[in-house]
Amino acid sequence: MELKMKVWVGVFFLSIGLSSVDLHAQEKLVVEDSLTWRDITRCTSFGIGSANLYDSYLSPQDYTGTEYSLQRESQHPTRFLSAWKLTQQTLFQGHFSYADNRSEKNTDMAFHAQLEYILYRTLLTTHFRNGNTLMLQVGPGLQGQGGMIYNLANGNNPVAVKVGGDLLASVQLAYHFYVGKKPFLLRYQATAPFIGVHFAPHYGASYYEMFSLGNDEDLTRVTYPGNQPSLYQHFSLDIPVWRGGTLRASYIWDVKQTDLNELRYHSWSNRFMLGFVHQFYRKPNR
């Protein structure tokens, strides 16, 4: 294992350990009022934004264009380890990007889907006198993703496939507040992959050699922040717009990057999303 990778593995487990230590301490200090929270929150969002694609397997140029996204998110307290006050988040994202090169003479089309499962542990819950609540959660997660970039002009190297799985570290800061008597939720989430395994073709290997001729040995690489410095950031505001109905407005800054086998890739996305939130109340310990 490379030294750089060992350092990042250490940092990851250090962050997990740090969250555990702090939690045990704060449980005595913070009064948890589970009734201030809905049990299950689901949100389906649609969005559009800018895409910046670069994959040196396809081209030395980057491509800029538009990204269309669908996101389905679910959050609720876990039924297991209830004493630890864990919250699980399931997040599905699907993206389609259509981007042109600088000369506008060629196009990349990209498809990407990913599914994340994150287990948050509450570090801090603070209730303010005006009824507002601030919550900080940190936790590990798992992610599986798949997709491809298709370059319309290339011959034997038209496609760059993106498939992989990662162990994640995530932090979430949520602020519940009231305007009048209406509850709002302002939330920030940042998630980064720490350790993973990704499909990684060799520098000049063709897909013909890999899949038609069967030279498929050693096509995966272990990833860590040194070769996969990626970060997903999500800012959202939940706005009650009608009786029982909540609208979620989000801004997402999604940076996916890899540098594997001297093949460099990035997908930088800034997107705005709108979605409908569905909340279901469930009695504790049910």
Partner: peptide, 17 residues
């Protein structure tokens, strides 16, 4: 510290053409 780790990852390792 936690936030710093996230941002450090990104800011020190931008992969660009």
């Amino acid at each position: 510290l936690l936030f710093g780790l996230f941002f450090l990852v990104l800011l020190t390792s931008c992969i660009d053409e």
